[in-house]
Amino acid sequence: MRIGRNSIVPILTPATAWFGLFFALPIAAMVVVSFWMVENYKLVPTFTLTNYAKLAQPLYLSIIARTFAIATIVTILAALIGYPVAYYLAQRLKRLRIFVLTLIVLPLWTSYLVRSFAWMLVLGTSGALNWFLQGIGVTDEPVRWFLYSEFAVIVALVHIYLPFFILPVFAVLDKLDHRLLEASTDLGAGPWTTFWTITLPLSRPGISTGCLLVFIPAAGSYVSPELLGGPSVLMIGSVIAQQFGLVFEFAFGSALALTLMMGILIVALGLLRIGMVQGLK
């Protein structure tokens, strides 16, 4: 049954209007403003490419490169760490499955601010990790590069977004047709051959969704690098925030934000392409 067309429009309206007014319109305004300029802390409507030209400066190029490098490393680490977990939950664990899944999802419910802050306590010179390492005699002096480093930012981002990788991969592996695996075994394939030729290719949609859900927030992260990166690990999020908070460079900030969005969009389209599985249904 279809509820008639004219009744669809009214109930879709509130969400669509809200989306249009407070998401699509602001993004469109940002596109426009990115071609404006700022004089005496005020936006001046004009058309200029100077904001984008400024992006080509080595300083900003290196920040953009670092941002995408960190986001890529975080995504790869999350995939390598998370895939075996999703596989174990979906294929091997039966009774405790819901319990372990709940434990994995639980941190998602605490704020990413609190989770970033937690790593300050763990990685600091008098933090948990250094205390532990000194306790078991691995090192005499506290290790300084744990906190306020790229290492700290990467560890925290993996921690914060790892569940986003595990969940979609679990969802795909959970629905995997067991007859395919049995057929493969019956035809004489060992467990590794079955994994590489059947399980892994079929989990591609989950892997690509998972990578997307980790990469996007990691590339746009602001809180974690601010708290854990220290002054030398500048990511694009912090620079964007500075333009809007401290220096009133809304035009340049908009150009930066759009560059980030374009970068994310390109990676997202690539990942979605990888996620398409042909045949085998």
Binding site: F23, P26, I27, A29, M30, I216, P217, A219, G220, S221, Y222, G237, I240, A241, F244, G253, S254, A257, L260, M261, I264
Partner: peptide, 8 residues
């Protein structure tokens, strides 16, 4: 990214 939602 939430940051983009906020600043937009």
């Amino acid at each position: 990214p939430r940051l983009v939602v906020g600043i937009a």
